[in-house]
């Protein structure tokens, strides 16, 4: 991509979301894994994931599938399928931590850990349920 010269471009600085030879018909209902994303689609890149200092880690057994993390994620990085929270898309997550803030379970089903943290290690040191403050 970086080596493309002036003679390689589509005229008009145009970018196509999907592979040029694929016609999309019902993109609004096609899951990402089934979409013919082009190399020009930012989905194909992980350029902003390197901004992360901390990352959210998901502990599934605590999750009640309320979908607050899904709706409030600014980076389309909460993977939900069939009304269930499945996990975090680390290619696109910028590590803002909104998902953790809005998580209503006790203890939270999503917590921020330093980027280098191993998932298994994080899950092992998950905090206990906090007592309700009166």
């Amino acid at each position: 991509m970086e080596k493309r010269g002036w003679d390689d471009f589509d005229p008009g600085v145009i970018l196509f979301s999907f592979e040029k030879d694929k016609k999309v018909t019902d993109i609004a209902t096609t899951e990402p894994e089934n979409r013919p994303y082009s190399q020009s689609n930012s989905f194909s890149s992980d350029q902003a994931s390197g901004w992360r200092v901390e990352k959210p880690i998901f502990k599934q057994d605590l999750c009640i599938d309320c979908q607050f993390c899904w709706i409030y994620c600014p980076d389309m990085s909460i993977i939900s399928r069939d009304k269930k929270m499945v996990g975090v898309d680390y290619d696109h997550c910028k590590g803002c931590g909104i998902c953790v803030e809005v998580c209503p379970t006790n203890p939270k089903s999503l917590l921020m850990f330093v980027e280098a943290k191993e998932e298994a290690e994080a899950l092992a040191e998950w905090p206990e349920k906090k007592k309700e403050e009166k």
């Binding site: 002036w6 471009f9 600085v13 196509f16």
Partner: peptide
């Protein structure tokens, strides 16, 4: 069937090539 993005931004790494074309 072929969504297109018009009016993308190109900075110093791409602008010159587009103007050249």
């Amino acid at each position: 069937e072929k969504p297109a993005t018009y009016g993308a931004q190109t900075e110093e790494n791409w602008h010159f090539e587009h103007k050249a074309q």
